[in-house]
Amino acid sequence: MSVAVEFNQVSKAFGTVKAADSVNLIIEDGEFFSMLGPSGSGKTTCLRLVAGFETPDSGHILLHGVDVSSLPPHARDVNTVFQDYALFPHMSVAENVEYGLKVKGVAPAERRTKVADALALVHLDSHAERRPSQLSGGQRQRVALARALINEPSVLLLDEPLGALDLKLRQTMQTELKNIQRQVGITFIFVTHDQEEALTMSDRIAVFNNGQIEQIGTPSEIYESPRNLFVAEFVGTSNVFDSGLAEQLLGSRDRFTVRPEKIRLGVAGECTVTGTITDLVYLGMYTRYRIDVQGIQLTVAEQNTESRLAMSSHAVGDEVQASWSKESCRLLA
């Protein structure tokens, strides 16, 4: 596999805020790569650096081995799907999609077939003559996608493209985006603050915080083995055990975390604690408990399997045993 995008010691500051702080990153060709982080963590800045809307203060950005750090956006072989879609309001859907080909001087006949193909790809063939203002949010999002993909960029940049959609539509679009990416085989760089979205869609994820990358890995690596406290707490829910409890349970003073779904209630195990249930929320697929253990709030997610429902009826205020295996403990750096 060849390298699609490379960040080499890239830094960018806005005033005193370091949006990107010596970022090093390699994104492979054909990857669905997510940049995940809270707002202000530098993920969008890194995306805009690839697009060319920002230029790095220091360091280099390489696209397929070529240094593009100082090239303007229109000279780069990447396209962007904007957060607000940025559709041209004075053009029809077809004209929006056609725009990139038109400014590059592609012949009209070829443009027509490509526009038709691109609109078919995003299931908007019947809306070609509408104006963006006549479309729903999800449809606009697809137009933005078709407008970018029609140029067959080597890398497609997506800046929180699903942020403005409601939950159901977002889930549909997640699957659709992933399918389209498999179909066209282009490298996708996807910026999001939604950890679930990043976990479901990505081949690999980079977790951003304060302009730096905290961890890069596959979704299961990020979720199952968070490298530090920030990743453990930002991606999913974690129970963090401080040195005192760590010494009691594992015999070492290193802090560690356990995911809520790895903890079992009412049985003893390799690591066992006893606490009081302070809160209980039934969430359909599972029930979430909060358990006070020596002043630490433990979150436990227990799946509502039939056997589970039949045997246990914990209530708020109950004293309960909670246990998990040593394997599920993750030491924090």
């Binding site: 697009a51 060319g52 956006p73 229109h74 607000d84 041209f88 725009y99 990139g100 400014v103």
Partner: peptide, 20 residues
Amino acid sequence: SLLEASADLGASPATTFRRI
């Protein structure tokens, strides 16, 4: 973002002015 989108799609600043 409309101007950025135009540049992103390959339009020079002059083209962006004329078309957007």
